[in-house]
Amino acid sequence: MSSTTSKPVHRISYRAVEIIQRNLLLAPGVLLYATFNFIPLLALFQLSLVNWPGIGPKVYVGFDNFTKVLTHPYYRDQMLNALIQNLVFFVVIIVCFLLIGTLLAMLLSVKTWGRKTYQVIFFLPYPMAGAAVAYLLDLFVHPRGPLNAALVQSGLLDSPFPFLGSEDTALITMSMFYTWHRMGFAIMLILSGILAVRSDLLEASMLDGASRWQSIRHVVFPVLGPAFILITVIVMVDVFNNADYVLLIMGPEAGPLRSTDIMGTFLFRTAFGGSADTTDTNFGMAAAIGLLTAIMILPAALFLALRNLRQQ
């Protein structure tokens, strides 16, 4: 369709084909997402208005599930507790990621001996299945496990330290598990940001007589923004929604004394019941909790995401 067609006709047909192709390109992803994700998500609103134990008839209760979660002391206290602990969990992880991750990524970006090997080793835990990591680390920090044995035998401690057995340390230990598992990913994202720094800018800054630290601060850090934001968003969404570690290690009761309870475990317990009581389950209330969680993190996630986009 070149020489014989006149220019305007050619343009229209190009445009038409373009639109068809565009729609064809868009279709698979949109269809997949809509069918298996977005449309079920919309049905969540409906579900949050019923009382339903997961089987049998659904009983319409209006906004009862929301009022119960927000005002009934038994549920409200659990919700607040889970929310605060979830925030702590998130902050500990993100601080570790950004501090240790940036430090290690920096060191990997300069000429150090064996840095290729270090890269591989640092990344090693990340591809491991969460279930395997959870079981492994649970055994590792057990009072009779390797870590405590080493601490006691070397004389650092008199008696085993109850990492997961005390309500003061269990949540922190859980966030350390998460950090141990995912640090490699944070390092790589930050490293990729650092490697993208244009060396001519750095050279110029060094020639201007800036110290190393000043060059890093003024030339490298600003470039790392998108990486930091990406890590923050991914981690935020993950820790507020998924609670696989706690579920696998502590079960839905999120012990000791609910000290590892986060939104994911609270929601799971509401939908499927805890190990202490399997009779009291309500998918409707779980949907309400999910919606409330989403309302809380959605603005933060969207803000960060859009900022990330707009910056570029």
């Binding site: 038994y74 005390s166 309500e167 012990g255 000791p256 004394l257 202490a276 009581d277 009291d280």
Partner: peptide, 23 residues
């Protein structure tokens, strides 16, 4: 005892854990 909400089961398991921990 258990058909009330919250019932005997969650109350006992929470309470026992708190008591074991000395709280």
């Amino acid at each position: 005892l258990i058909s009330v909400d919250p019932g005997y089961r969650p109350l006992v398991s929470e309470g026992m854990q708190q008591m074991l921990a000395g709280r």
